[in-house]
Write a protein that binds this DNA or RNA. Structure first.
Lengths: 228, 228
DNA sequence: CATGAGCTATATGTATACATGAGCGACTGA
DNA sequence: TCAGTCGCTCATGTATACATATAGCTCATG
């Protein structure tokens, strides 16, 4: 069961020795977002400490931080569990993210540089190719890059940070609903429509289309969840 | 220098013995929001532990959590400081909050119940009276209640939580700029205009007016900051 | 006099130890 | 057989102890 965190093997080529508590936090964040740790699962401090080859102290700090992010729930003296989310709450989160994305697109339309616009088109093309190839994982990554590029194009760093944070909390759900090939194709088409509005400098239209795009994804997810 | 946290004397009539780390977190949150701890101020763990009559452990947990909220910056192995925000970042935060409030008002317009609408009008009247009386502190409180009532009227709990959290991070700045009597009067008038649009069920207009309202506040703040 | 290397003091990061309340099972009584 | 209480166990909450990197000082050198 021991799989102490291998340092830097993944991508952190920088030799910077990350704080133990941060590495634990990152690891848990990933596992929750990826759905490996299911909502409601109990997170025993000592157990996690053993798993990460650390003491309880950094584990506790990581858990406390995750609680602020909303990824876990802490019941004082009763332990920590992965945040259990009702379908209603998930839909609320989707609506919120949809609105945030919509407002990001509106601002981005008016503020983005030509280079940023070019980058978006590039990403859109890449996504289309990945979709045609049926490479869902590649599409996932490109899609994330696409949305982040939009956040950054608002030229409001704070807003972009908030948007990225919110988006991350939906990762665990988003992946499931994109398995449907037709949903993936529609997603591409919707991106295209958003870009068209951006090209015309029509922020309001782009915004409305983005909202619809996100809500479509939410509806697809709900349908998927109900099917089970 | 000792002022260990008196428990429950303030409002927590419930005899629930809050976790030490939570009480420290709340206390620090308040002090930062109130501007008692100035941006850039170093937060020494041992010092805080002494001040609160606790050990470093709960203090550390509190600081870690505040870092996630963005209220403090942690430089690994180099200590914790109250988040130092550039004027640019403050303006970005204001813009973000303005946009969030705007979208809340839009949703709220379409979704609020008659009772919620009535409550808003009530709060508006109270605020007007407080403004006439020149009671800035009372106005502060009523104003916060007004905005929170709007968040809740979106009937999207998640969104409301996010909005409240964001708003809280601007508290330290907001208070300074409302000292100007005329700004306070204009604020009341702007609230009235927003309510008028809500009454007509015109979410878009209400939204635009709210955005303008928040940005006016931001401009007033910037002017205030530049004056010093 | 300025600059930089080296040392020391100290605060942070982590581990371990102790205190306390929650959860659970056994036992008693009906 | 079942309900209720008692007491035990263990995880959490807090305190303390130890390891280590950073910051500031001293002192030597250009």
């Amino acid at each position: 069961m021991v799989d102490a965190i291998e340092d830097g093997a993944s991508e952190d080529t920088e030799g910077e020795p990350l704080l133990l508590s941060e590495r634990i936090r990152n690891a848990l964040t990933d596992e929750i977002a990826a759905g490996e740790l299911l909502p409601g699962a109990a997170l025993d401090e000592q157990q996690l400490a053993n798993r990460f080859g650390a003491s309880r102290t950094p584990v506790r700090e990581a858990l406390r931080q995750l609680a602020v992010s909303g990824l876990v729930d802490i019941r004082p003296r009763r332990g920590v569990v992965v945040a259990r989310m009702t379908p209603e709450r998930v839909m609320e989160m989707f609506e919120t993210v949809a609105e945030i994305e919509a407002l990001c697109v509106r601002l981005a339309t008016y503020r983005m540089t030509p280079a940023e616009r070019g980058r978006l088109l590039e990403l859109h093309d890449e996504a289309s190719r990945a979709a045609e190839a049926g490479d869902v994982d590649a599409y996932d990554g490109i899609n994330a890059a696409f949305h982040e590029a939009l956040y950054n194009a608002t030229h409001n760093e704070f807003l972009a940070e908030q948007a990225i944070g919110l988006r991350g909390r939906l990762n665990g759900f988003r992946r499931t609903q994109l398995r449907h090939k037709d949903r993936l194709d529609r997603s591409i088409a919707e991106h295209g429509a958003i870009l068209a509005a951006i090209a015309e400098g029509d922020g309001d239209t782009a915004s409305r289309r983005m909202r619809a795009h996100m809500l479509n994804a939410a509806i697809a997810l709900r349908r998927y969840l109900e099917d089970r």
